[in-house]
Design a protein around this nucleic acid. Sequence first.
DNA 1: CCTGAGCTATAACAATTGTCATAGTCTACC
DNA 2: GGTAGACTATGACAATTGTTATAGCTCAGG
Lengths: 194, 194
Amino acid sequence: MTKSSPSARERIVAGAADMISRRGLNATSIRETAKHARAPLGSTYHYFPEGKQQLVTEAVRYTGEWTARNLRKELRAGPVAGLQAFLALWRKIVVDSDFRAGCPVLAVSIEEPAPGETSAVLAAAADVFTTWEGLLADSLREHGAEPERAADLATLIVAAVEGTVAMCRAKRSTQPLDRTAEQLRALILAAVKD
Amino acid sequence: MTKSSPSARERIVAGAADMISRRGLNATSIRETAKHARAPLGSTYHYFPEGKQQLVTEAVRYTGEWTARNLRKELRAGPVAGLQAFLALWRKIVVDSDFRAGCPVLAVSIEEPAPGETSAVLAAAADVFTTWEGLLADSLREHGAEPERAADLATLIVAAVEGTVAMCRAKRSTQPLDRTAEQLRALILAAVKD
DNA sequence: CCTGAGCTATAACAATTGTCATAGTCTACC
DNA sequence: GGTAGACTATGACAATTGTTATAGCTCAGG
């Protein structure tokens, strides 16, 4: 709830992100995103004249920025606290949805782009991953981690969290999250105190 | 090439796994899997009378077993060698497909099951993940890792590899794989020599 | 009051989807 | 040779897809 009455456009984007995080990119239809946002189908093509690709790209960026804001805030208390918050964020999504929702950025990353063309959606997803990695790596460096190791570890964290969330959905259990949380925490501590 | 002339049924299952690994579950249609396997559409429903769900479930299991065989073999040379082989396997899939293919087990894990019912597909995916984790954990324990830590680390490895493969696709680069490889290798060494 | 822009409503389009039915072909065995 | 069972070929079905077109509404600014 960032606003008391978000605009129809915002509702569509946020709703699309939510639906993609549950059903994947291809199973999310423009008609259903419109219905989900209580907006008419016509409005979708009014706000997003380039069609589905544009809507999905914005949904990916929306999720990326929302998460980055959260991460940035929590990282102010250090990398371990940032990791905990990052994990808690995804755990909440998984649990609250009864293991039906995950990360929309991951979801769009595993769908083949149209032959010949490089997808704007994939590029947005790559940007989001890079942003998340950058935030984590910066925080690690600020707390004494060796620069190269910080970058490697940041990538591992993002990859592990994304993979873990998917595993939780398949297993209908948060056990994978608990396990990777433990391991990643130890890794950060080791990297920071060198 | 495990056989000189695989049966039509095998071709359909293997082809479905490949297509799911590229386009995701919902964008993989039975018509196209049949065409891809040079089998008639009618045959698909002959071999898989329960329809798409059955075909997809078998495709997931097929990938799971194929990978598990590979992993089991390479783990005979120890957990570090097993990890390298596991990573090399996925790297080859990603690179050979020009960053278009990934893991079909991950792909099916992120699609919401029909409301109310628990999907057989998701259950198969969960089984596959658990099998891979078990193989890695056993190997770690055999080489001196503490039991609980072995289980946690095995989960982290599977999750990280799955997430990393997806990130490589989005970024159209193998850099994430290189980075996680480095980190995971160090982790295994530390856990084993304790 | 009128104009025009922003938005909505509704219908249509060609394609594709999963699934089913039915008739035909092939092949191994009696 | 013939018969059963495995497989193929073909076509149909209702639904849903992304997208476009067009006509209507709403409401601020002049």
